[in-house]
């Protein structure tokens, strides 16, 4: 599978990603390092969604819930350190290792419970029940007065602490995010090619047949759902650190929609697609207004969504493979 051309391509991409902060510093655009971190974080989240969406065929319209739960774990633990109070008898913590691990575990648990319930349904009902659960959690956090309710939690202590790495430094933080992204990219490649991944994809293509073959379809789907939730939780934890701030907004249904857009934009059911989608989405969001300003369409700079909306429709209608699909079609590749 890994041919020489791909190997060269992957190596070049990784190197480029590693050099991002240096290049941006050289250009005098250091503040964009933060955008690069966001791309890595949202890439991770979109990748996790792609596991269930693209490979598992489960259209979850509530993936932001796990992103938000992971973020809130970090935010709440940090809040208690700042506040000096305890939570259910435990002290808060600013330690990255502990709070990120907890974020992963708790979002996995939530994904397990909600996934087990949601997977009783399928099709449109699955879309809607995942949406309903996400809305439920959204309103739960809105009503948590202790943690700022709708206003959310500001991490007054700043980012978490990691031994030997200063996360408050944007470049170091970027490298931490990038490490996670690359590690999980590798992990997902292995996962998708493993027996588990094969069964999952077979379930998407023909569930009845897999069931007839004696495969416990729901168990495989649930496992994928939990893995996706856990990784989204990690992404949420990272994003809480990036923004030093958590709010119910992280769980809003439009955020779930954003993650879906990233997956589709980049290329559903491909390994790298969601990351490219996240990059394209976030860069469009940042630069589309500027582009309109610079090219002499000042009306559009404030109303850039009037272009973004149709763009999205066009991608859905005519570029089904997303950016990755379009790119490989141009290269004449047929492996997907």
């Amino acid at each position: 599978m890994v041919n020489k051309r791909n190997l060269v391509f992957v190596t070049a991409a990784v190197l480029a990603a590693i050099l991002v902060p240096q290049v941006l510093t050289m250009l005098g655009e250091e503040y964009l390092i933060g955008t690069a971190s966001r791309i890595a974080i949202y890439g991770l989240a979109a990748m996790s969604l792609n596991l269930i969406l693209g490979y598992g065929g489960m259209v979850s319209f509530g993936h932001a819930a796990y992103f938000g739960v992971g973020a809130y774990v970090v935010g709440i633990l940090s809040f208690h350190v700042f506040d000096g109070s305890s939570i259910m008898g435990f002290q808060g913590t600013d330690a990255a290792v502990l709070s990120w691990l907890l974020a992963i575990v708790i979002s996995a648990l939530v994904a397990f419970v909600l996934g087990a319930l949601s997977l009783r349904t399928s099709g449109v009902y699955f879309i809607m029940i995942t949406l309903a659960f996400a809305q439920m959690l959204y309103f739960l956090f809105v009503s948590m007065e202790r943690y700022g309710g709708d206003d959310g939690v500001i991490m007054y202590n700043g980012r978490n602490s990691l031994p030997m790495v200063d996360l408050s430094d944007d470049t170091s933080f970027y490298y931490v995010c990038l490490t996670f992204l690359l590690a999980f990219l590798l992990l997902f490649v292995l996962l998708v090619r493993s027996r588990f991944g094969k069964v999952l994809q077979a379930c998407r293509q023909n569930e009845t047949r897999m069931r007839a073959l004696g495969c416990n379809v729901r168990r495989y789907k649930l496992a994928a759902f939990v893995i996706a939730g856990a990784v989204a939780g990690l992404a949420g934890a990272l994003n809480a650190n990036h923004a030093e701030y958590v709010s119910p907004d992280y769980l809003h249904w439009t955020k779930s929609g954003d993650l879906m857009i990233m997956v589709i934009l980049g290329g559903i059911g491909t390994i790298i697609g969601p990351v490219i989608g996240a990059a394209a989405f976030l860069l469009l969001e940042d630069f589309l207004p500027l582009l309109f300003d610079a090219t002499g369409f000042p009306t559009f700079k404030e109303h850039w969504r009037i272009v973004f909306g149709p763009l999205l429709i066009l991608v859905v209608l005519f570029a089904r493979g997303g950016l990755v699909g379009t790119f490989s079609a141009m290269r004449g590749d047929h492996e997907r």
Binding site: Y31, I154, A243
Partner: peptide, 16 residues
Amino acid sequence: RKPGNGKQIADKFLKR
């Protein structure tokens, strides 16, 4: 109306 965006913009204004 999103604090996350507010932070990003503030970063840009102050740093760049």
